[in-house]
Design a protein around this nucleic acid. Structure first.
Length: 474
DNA sequence: ATGTCC
């Protein structure tokens, strides 16, 4: 027989072995000790060990399996939540849906949670709500970061008069159409970037299979609420970081993340976390990885790589536009809003701060909070408010779900609003219409203790992922 | 958000 000793994990599970570490140990023992035996005989031995492990504790061959079987099975133990959530602050509570608050309550009942806050643009997500901020001790929650790891904003301010968005409109539109890629579209020949030669792409198993597509998608933008847009930024703070005179300038703003790479990493490690960290039903998507484990360290490295990759994509977008404009920006501002950071709490202890749809707003930290296609976005400087865990919103937040927007909004109404606001739109669907978003001014009012406004941005030429149904109506 | 369903 050519398959002597060949047993796989599934066969062990079939005869009743619990999923987990013991499978690996048993397979190792089988390979080492029973490789010449018929599979059926091996399975019989394995059955006997399983039926009465204590009888095999002194067996030379199977004692390791027996020991593992006798260990209290931590894998199936459901970790208890605290009876009530730790206190946390909600900003702009009146505008936040109940489901998001419920999800944040659940997150604040995790035994690993230390602090948290809910931003005024919050809405329901998987695990941590979008707009949720959560500080934990030495653990990282993949769905506390979100699927689009490193989703971020980037703004370039050019020393070009604001009037150019009108006088140069045709050229700017061409630059967007020819030099940005959305959805499935990618560049025929992506620009090289050092991120692709990062050794982690060969050192971490899950990343090996992601390198090729990451290269193919380099410099692209994705779909949904991602955009690249030209607009006018008014710098309102004379005491700004770049010594720019207050006034209006041509500006480029982009919003996108880590494409397929981050999504694959997020889903892979969430699944892994859910296998090792069993939580009650309502909290199961908040499964965490201990940063002292191999999986936790791998996720941390992979997450950071995905963040750097997302940043690289933005930089290439901005580089292409700067080439088109034949000038370099006088200022660049950028920030992740789906990410986890190692920070210090007020006592100086290390904490892991997850921001899932939240802008870092430590004291003096610059960030960008976009509004909608027709509403202003803001360049902000964090005030370092402790209660917010040094955070602010990452946008206005949705007022309508995507389906609701698609079903109720009329293309003509949206077009009228765009026209009124003087906004030229390339691509997009009805679900990204301005009316689908909350009023950003109300959201900013709710977080005035968290950030101060450095500049106000108005979108003028917006490119998003296309939507045929919306496009047809011309 | 996502080679938009392994």
């Amino acid at each position: 027989m050519q398959n002597k000793g060949k047993i796989n994990g599934n066969q062990l599970i079939e005869i009743g072995y619990p999923e987990g570490k013991v499978i690996g140990i048993a397979l190792e023992v089988i390979q080492k000790e029973y490789s010449l035996m018929e599979p059926d005989e091996v399975l019989d031995i394995m059955k006997n060990v399983l039926a009465s492990p204590s009888d095999f504790l002194n067996d030379l061959k199977t004692s390791f399996i027996a020991e593992e079987l006798l260990k209290p099975n931590k894998k199936d133990e459901i970790i208890e939540l605290l009876p009530s959530p730790r206190l946390y602050k909600i900003y702009g509570k009146e505008g936040i849906e109940a489901g998001a608050i419920k999800q944040m309550d659940t997150a604040m009942r995790l035994p690993v949670s230390i602090a948290g806050a809910l931003m005024p643009d919050a809405h329901q997500g998987y695990g941590l709500p979008i707009g949720g901020v959560l500080a934990t001790r030495n653990t990282v929650i993949p769905y506390g970061v979100g699927v689009d790891i490193g989703c971020r904003m980037c703004m370039s301010i050019f020393d070009i008069p604001a009037g150019y968005v009108e006088t140069g409109k045709g050229d700017l539109m061409k630059m967007l159409v020819n030099n940005t890629m959305f959805g499935r579209a990618t560049f025929k020949k992506p620009k090289d970037h050092e991120i692709i030669s990062n050794p982690l792409f060969s050192e971490i198993e899950i990343l090996r299979g992601l390198k090729e597509r990451a290269y193919a998608q380099l410099g692209s933008s994705g779909g949904g609420n991602h955009f690249v847009e030209f607009g006018i930024v008014e710098v309102v703070d004379s005491n700004n970081e770049w010594n720019i005179a207050p006034g209006k300038y041509l500006s480029l703003l982009s919003h996108s993340g880590s494409r397929g790479m981050g999504a694959t990493i997020a889903n892979y490690y969430t699944k892994l976390a859910m296998e090792t960290c069993k939580l009650p039903q309502e909290a199961k998507h908040l499964a965490w990885l201990d940063l002292d484990t191999e999986a936790g360290q791998e996720y941390w490295l992979a997450m950071n790589l995905a963040g750097d990759y997302a940043s690289a994509c933005h930089h290439q977008i901005h580089e292409r536009m700067a080439i088109g404009l034949r000038t370099n920006p006088v200022a660049m501002i950028e920030n992740h809003h789906n990410f986890a950071w190692k920070e210090k709490d007020e006592k100086g202890n290390d904490v892991i701060v997850h921001r899932k749809g939240a802008t870092p707003a430590g004291k003096g930290v610059l960030g960008i909070i976009p509004g909608s296609m027709t509403a202003p976005g803001y360049v902000v400087r964090g005030k370092g408010d402790e209660a917010s865990v040094n955070s602010a919103s990452h946008g206005a937040g949705r007022a309508m779900s995507r389906t609701q927007a698609k079903n109720t909004l009329k293309p003509e109404t949206v077009k009228q609003q765009l026209q009124k606001a003087g906004v030229e739109l390339i691509g997009s669907g009805l679900d990204e219409a301005p009316m689908a978003y909350k009023d950003i001014r109300t959201v900013m009012e709710a977080q005035k203790d968290l950030v101060e406004v450095v500049g106000v941005f108005l979108p003028k030429i917006v490119r998003m992922c296309g939507d045929e149904k919306f496009q047809e109506v011309d």
